[in-house]
């Protein structure tokens, strides 16, 4: 045995125990850290369900808020507001997002394609509160008032990067034989894009859209100075009032989207800071609704993707 063989042997025996213990300790530690990270998740979900569940009843979903200090009432106005604002956000973000994704997937290495990718990355990193400032400057200020419209636009900016990225990924997954098949039959490129690629990728694009929407529905910061909040917002009254006074469709629509509205996260934020116990309990209930909404959409979308990719692979 060489000199080094002996040296190695001495050291090896001296170190063997230390190395083995270190291995065991550190490997267990990674498991412990993983478990530790899940503690807040379980804690929040369980606690919000238990506490929020107490204040949830039919009134909560169907009534407008009672005046401060009075028990009862609901958050119908915020549910309506959330639906309207996220619907607007979807309308504003999906068409440009999908079209830009077609460009990104089709011309990834052109200067414009790279600039698009960079912009998407930057947009996804912009803090949501900054997007709120932007929407205020370009919409609220020129229009002269807060509105659901401005809130929807702000959320749309936040959703755009996710929609572009998931759509692009999904388009790239479409087998290129499918494209060539269509092109070879003499279909033009845009027909191929819309009649072959888009339907083939639709499922994936839709789940991506749902995830982005769930995220947007939980956002508060960009709405603080775009939709502002409005406890007296009453969709039913707006519509019935409009119909009674023989207003046209667009006039009613204008009244729906062109005034301040509330949303669930905005309501939660305001209620949590008020010194009235009823409101704080309602804040927990709002948290429950919001959390369930987001979690259900998330889990459904993931299961859906999982099932579909398995079917495609298998």
């Amino acid at each position: 045995m060489t000199r080094f063989g002996k040296l190695l042997n001495q050291n090896r025996i001296a170190h063997a125990r230390k190395r083995k213990t270190g291995n065991k300790v550190m490997l267990s530690l990674t498991g412990v850290l993983t478990a530790l990270a899940l503690v807040p998740l379980v804690w929040i979900i369980v606690y919000v369900i238990l506490r929020g569940g107490k204040s949830i009843n039919l009134d909560f979903f169907t009534q407008l808020p009672k005046p401060l200090g009075m028990a009862g009432g609901g958050v119908l106005h915020a549910i309506e507001g959330t639906l309207i604002v996220t619907l607007l956000a979807g309308i504003f973000s999906v068409p440009p997002g999908v079209l830009a994704a077609f460009y990104a997937a089709r011309f990834p290495n052109t200067p414009l394609g790279m600039a698009l990718r960079f912009s998407t990355d930057v947009l996804s990193g912009v803090p949501s509160i900054v997007v709120g400032l932007f929407a205020y400057a370009v919409l609220v200020k020129p229009m002269g008032h807060y509105s659901a419209l401005a809130g929807g636009a702000a959320l749309a900016v936040l959703m755009l990067p996710t929609i572009i990225r998931t759509t692009e990924e999904m388009l790239k997954l479409v087998p290129h034989t499918l494209r060539e098949g269509s092109l070879a039959l003499g279909a033009s490129e845009w027909k191929t894009s819309l009649s072959v690629l888009f339907p083939a990728a639709l499922n994936g694009i839709f789940t991506g859209f749902l995830l982005a929407l769930a995220r947007a529905a939980g956002e508060t910061a960009p709405l603080l100075f775009t939709t502002l909040g409005n406890e007296r917002y009453d969709l039913k009254a707006i519509i019935s009032g409009g119909v009674q006074s023989h207003q046209g469709f667009f006039q009613i629509l204008d009244r729906i989207v062109n005034q301040p509205v509330d949303s669930l996260p905005l309501t939660l934020w305001k209620y949590a800071q008020q010194p009235y116990p009823e409101r704080i309990e309602q804040a927990w209930a709002v948290a429950l609704v919001l959390m369930l909404l987001v979690l259900i959409v998330n889990i459904t979308a993931r299961v859906w993707i999982q099932v579909r990719t398995r079917r495609m692979e298998g």
Partner: peptide, 8 residues
């Protein structure tokens, strides 16, 4: 890399 593992 190997020798270092064994404490050299």
């Amino acid at each position: 890399y190997g020798p270092r593992l064994y404490g050299i």
